[in-house]
Every structure is written in structure tokens, then in C-alpha cells.
């Protein structure tokens, strides 16, 4: 098999894995929350049905909007999926490793956020503007912590390319080499992931109350296939962050070669790892209440300081 065809196949596999797994994660979190609230809850496969149904519905578009509004779902979907292709999922060496490192991933996600903010403003309703405005502040506070925590991780592996980080740590002892800096970077990145994917305690994906919603307010005017793509992209973003955390901090079991058995095991282990993280998020969402918008600074301040400490510890331990 020529290398190009092999790469193409791997990329296709990655796309399929990400697209299939993301609604499942959303469903799983909802299920966990329901069980914790003593409810039966919908099936974990409900989000698939939701997306399929939304695709078949006729979309309504506001008369005040411009072309930004219908274009945004596609841009958001494309940028999130592209970001997903840079993160290793079940094999440690993604073929598109060269096309972007972790900073490119951050900026690809920012591209989606930028257009989503614009779309929120486009319909002209006050809800959309409010969501956009809040998303802007949450994003601004998240990014510095994200860059620093990423750097703390990158230092240990000597690389900012995700595949390389994962591959190297998978072949070594993983995070056991430098536990304290890694622990802090992990904590920081986890908080960042919660904020970026719009989970409790930063945002509540289940709310449609105008005082509390952020992401939901921005996409309030969407319907039909546009909404389907946005929901799917939101799921994808969750999958991207969970894969990032799972594979960077616990790369055990990931396929480091292209042998079929290794890949099979990798796939299985990957599913278990991200499902575990999704359950964790569900549990956390039941334990904590959503923070007030202006208290989010406290939480993200903690994330920033943690990342900074991770960096400091790394240098002190290695000096």
C-alpha cells in the first residue's frame, strides 16, 4: 500500500471515529446526569436521532441575516473537524501531524468561535448578542491558561506537535516521568476544556434561560440542518478536548504501530478512556452549580496559575 493511500485511509478512519463518537459522548453525559438526578433519562444514542431529525427539518432563516448566518455552521463544522484531525485518537501518529501543532489547533477552534460570535450578532436579537458578548469574554480568559498548560506539557515531550507528544509519552512512562508539573498542567487543561466546551460550571448546555446561557444564546436562531451541524460540531469539540486530555496524559494502550491488532486495541482503549472522562464530566456537572459569569474569572484564574506553576515546577525539577 503506498504511503499516500495509507494516510488517506487513516484520515478517513479518524474522521469517521470522531463523527461517530461525538454524539455518543453528549448522550453519555446526559445519561449520567439523569441517573444522578434519579431519572431514567433518554438513551445514550438519543443525540444521533436528534441530529438525524434536525437534518430532515426545514430550516428557517431570519430575514435580517446576511450570508454569514448560513455559512457559519459549515465553517464551524469544518474548523472543529480540522482541529480534530490534529489530535491523535486511537493511533499515536496521525498522518496530518505535519499540518498543524497544538497552537494551530487552538487557532482553528478560535476560527469557529469567531464565526459563531458573528452569527450570534447577525440575527439582530438581543439574545444572540448577549451570547456572543459572553462567549468573547470566556474565550479571552481561557486562551492564556490553555497556551501555558500546553507549553508545560510540550516541554516534557520536547515537542508541540500532538502526535509527537503522545507517541513519545506512550513509548516512555507517560506522565510518571514528571508527576507534579504534569498534574498541574492536567488540572489546568481540564478546567480549560470545561470552559471551552461550554460545560458546567462555566456554561450550562441544558439551559435556555436568558440569564444563564452562553453557547445556546448564540445559536438560538438556528434550526434544521444548520442546527444539526452546530450540535454536531459542539459534540466534536468535546471529543477533541477529551481525546487531547486522554491521550496526552494517559497515552497507555494507544496504537503506536499500524498493526491491525494494535489498532483494534487502540480503538477499544480510546473508547473506554473518553467514555470515562465523559462520565467524570457528568458527575462533576451534578456536583457543582453553574458559576456566575463574573465568577468564571476566579476559576480560569486558577487554571492560569496552575499552568504557570506546572511550568515553574518543570524548570525547577530539571535545572
Amino acid at each position: 500500500m503506498s504511503p499516500i493511500i495509507q494516510s488517506l485511509l487513516l484520515v478517513t478512519a479518524q474522521v469517521i471515529v470522531l463523527l461517530t463518537v461525538s454524539p455518543f459522548l453528549v448522550g453519555l453525559i446526559r445519561k449520567v446526569k439523569a441517573r444522578f438526578q434519579c431519572r431514567q433519562g433518554a438513551s445514550v444514542f438519543q443525540p444521533y436521532a436528534d441530529i438525524a431529525k434536525l437534518f430532515r427539518k426545514q430550516p428557517v432563516i431570519s430575514t435580517t441575516t446576511s450570508w454569514i448566518f448560513p455559512a457559519t455552521p459549515y465553517i464551524l463544522f469544518a474548523s472543529t473537524l480540522s482541529a480534530g484531525l490534529l489530535v491523535p485518537t486511537f493511533i499515536s501518529q496521525t498522518p496530518l501531524n505535519f499540518s498543524g501543532n497544538i497552537i494551530a489547533l487552538v487557532y482553528l477552534l478560535a476560527l469557529g468561535t469567531f464565526f459563531l460570535i458573528l452569527a450570534g450578532l447577525d440575527a439582530g436579537s438581543a439574545f444572540g448578542g448577549m451570547g456572543s458578548s459572553r462567549e468573547a469574554i470566556v474565550a479571552s480568559l481561557t486562551e492564556p491558561a490553555m497556551i501555558l498548560s500546553i507549553f508545560a506539557i510540550a516541554l516534557t515531550a520536547g515537542s508541540t506537535n500532538l502526535s509527537t507528544i503522545v507517541h513519545k509519552t506512550a513509548l516512555l512512562e507517560g506522565i510518571a516521568t514528571d508527576p507534579s508539573p504534569h498534574l498541574m498542567a492536567l488540572a489546568a487543561l481540564f478546567i480549560v476544556a470545561l470552559a471551552e466546551t461550554g460545560r458546567v460550571p462555566v456554561d450550562n448546555p441544558a439551559t435556555h434561560l436568558e440569564l444563564t446561557m452562553i453557547h445556546e444564546a448564540m445559536v438560538l436562531e438556528y434550526s434544521g440542518r444548520y442546527l444539526a451541524l452546530i450540535e454536531w460540531a459542539a459534540g466534536l469539540k468535546l471529543a477533541v478536548f477529551l481525546s487531547l486530555i486522554a491521550n496526552v496524559f494517559a497515552p497507555w494502550g494507544i496504537a503506536t504501530t499500524l498493526a491491525p491488532t494494535a489498532m483494534g486495541i487502540g480503538l477499544l482503549v480510546y473508547a473506554v478512556k473518553i467514555a470515562g472522562l465523559a462520565v467524570l464530566i457528568g458527575v462533576l456537572e451534578c456536583m457543582f452549580a453553574k458559576l456566575r459569569l463574573f465568577r468564571v474569572t476566579d476559576l480560569l484564574g486558577v487554571a492560569f496559575i496552575l499552568a504557570l506553576l506546572g511550568l515553574l515546577f518543570f524548570y525547577i525539577l530539571r535545572s
Binding site: 430550516p59 465553517i75 469544518a78 474548523s79 473537524l81 480540522s82 496530518l96 499540518s99 434544521g224 444539526a228
Partner: peptide, 26 residues
């Protein structure tokens, strides 16, 4: 990647939903 991703989005919308006209409303 961005262009192909966008096209994939269009393709998925077409595969699942077919050709649907959008409706304009205020």
C-alpha cells in the same frame, strides 16, 4: 482541510436531509 471539512458538512446535510428549501421569517 477547512475547505474539505466544509464540503463534508454540505455533503452530510444533503445525505441526511436531501434538498430542502429554507424558509425566511423575521
Amino acid at each position: 482541510m477547512l475547505i474539505l471539512g466544509g464540503l463534508l458538512g454540505l455533503l452530510l446535510a444533503f445525505l441526511f436531509g436531501g434538498r430542502l428549501m429554507t424558509r425566511s421569517y423575521k
